[in-house]
Amino acid sequence: MGIIAETIFILAIRQSISIRRIAVLLLLAAIPLVIAIASGLLDADWDGEATQGFIQGLIFNTGLPLIALIVAAPVFADEIEDRTLTNLMLSPISRWQISIPKMLAAAAIVAIPLAISTFVSVLLVFDEEAYSAAIIAALGIAIGAIAFTSLFAFIGTITTRAVVFGIVYVFGFEALISTAIPGLKYVSISGNTLSVLQELNSTLIDAPTSGSNQLPPIEYAIIALLAVITVSNLATVWRLKQMDVH
């Protein structure tokens, strides 16, 4: 990584870790862990449905996109709003060298606390193959974090209301509609991420083979996730090239 990209990466990390944002981020990331510890203390029985609801519904369909939204949407939107983006846009580098370090910084901030929380939660919840399931779950958080932050960072370049749009998307589509209407998992980042995880560890993700919770095939899921990441980042670069920086 060159000196400018490294500088932008570190700058993005510093911009993202305000005390309030970190508090919200850690609180949300800790929810799965708190539930897992509480269920252990209460000696609760995790059946298959409860486990899948915990992993898929809570962590991948809601927690991951919500945390990604909180971190990634302001990555460009805040800089456009407070006009500090000028400092980066007057750097002697291509626009992708601005967008990629910022996206990676956001993805790291999303993934690290949630991956740790998910890793420990899966260890506590699963009896069989708990360690490998926990590693795969943490890997899934990293994959999903990159896809979601790419999308939300782009949305932050086109509207100052990225968070509002994102909340509707996370709760309306990812958490609700995509799990209720058959076929919509094909256009869900969570759905495609879960498909990859199911391929890697069928104990961790045990989705039905038909109905609204049926996951897309693995080949499709990989292509879909790569497409989301690539198209979102290309769109961000295009937007940075086109925009008038105030």
Partner: peptide, 14 residues
């Protein structure tokens, strides 16, 4: 931009 120093009107400092 390597050859130019620019100070914009707005207070764009961190």
């Amino acid at each position: 931009y390597k050859r130019i120093g620019i100070m914009t009107e707005n207070e764009s400092a961190y």
